[in-house]
Write a protein that binds this DNA or RNA. Structure first.
Lengths: 154, 154
DNA sequence: TTCATATAGTCAGTTTAGCTTACTATCTGG
DNA sequence: CCAGATAGTAAGCTAAACTGACTATATGAA
């Protein structure tokens, strides 16, 4: 089939990107089916990092690893689409708190359901325990990368 | 630390993106150290899908999952930077075969070394066998997704 | 108290990496 | 031999990031 057997190491990037893509596509599909066809992948990500109680644009940008200008643009679009709204921060007049509207909560529910259904499919398709072991590894790896970054900054 | 404990499912996208980013950054760092600071992440990807014996632009595009126009642009840039060259396809006068130059092979070696060093670091940082089990899971998952796509098209 | 500096957010402009539509040149099967 | 199919290019568009410069507000220290 494959004319060139590439090493696992070399293909690791691709192996990581594949399921990532599949998740995004599945969420997009389910959202579109529910009539929400106006959300881009980047907008999902913004949503993903927004805690239930809301957050400042700058906090959100940090979490997502993009600039505050980029996050600002994402948030602006999501507000104009009716998914988010801004509340003034009572403790700081420069800032505002971005929170979900009811419409925003609906997205959240659909996305959650879509992901957990997809993960269940994957769990069934693989050897017992394999998926969860892999996810655990990714979690441990994320912790390691976090710690790494910490020491590099400090 | 984290004010909102998000479910593993919900964060799976992020968990997958994190190591992916780390790989790209590490390769970029090592290439820059060797004086190759003119390569973009997208160009790495093009490189990644190019077999040793070379390939047509269209084949490359299919492999990478982008349009032939996008791949054409990537290849054009890589040629002008001296990393690739075009050889006429002796069997088809419409086509040409894209192959690495010596400079291109050097990139290849640096990237390979960078990835395997990074993967070794990760292997050491995690529990014994954990990383490799996870990579194996990703491989199995990739196979599943491939099969899935196959049946959806067929 | 005031002032220097830091922070939240915006505005304007640029870059990157993809896309679609339309085209030329060549190949191939009926 | 000709009607598609295929390899590749051209032109123009869009999404999503970036940098640099700016305003308004907060805050710590003299």
């Amino acid at each position: 089939m494959n004319s060139t057997p590439l090493s696992t190491d070399r293909m690791l990037g691709a192996l990581l990107r594949l399921p990532s893509r599949a998740i995004v596509r599945r969420i997009a599909r389910d959202l579109a089916r529910a009539g929400h066809d106006d959300l881009s992948p980047a907008q999902f990500v913004a949503f993903q990092y927004l805690p239930p109680e809301g957050a400042r644009t700058t906090e959100l940008a940090e979490q997502a690893g993009i600039t505050k200008q980029s996050m600002s643009a994402l948030v602006r679009a999501l507000i104009s689409q009716g998914y988010l709204e801004r509340l003034p921060d009572p403790t700081d007049r420069r800032a505002s708190i971005v929170v979900r509207t009811e419409r925003g909560w609906e997205i959240e529910r659909i996305a959650r359901t879509a992901i957990s259904a997809l993960v269940d499919e994957w769990r069934d398709a693989l050897a017992p325990g394999q998926l969860d072991a892999g996810i655990e590894m990714l979690g441990a790896l994320a912790d390691h990368l976090d710690a790494q970054e910490e020491t590099e900054r400090g």
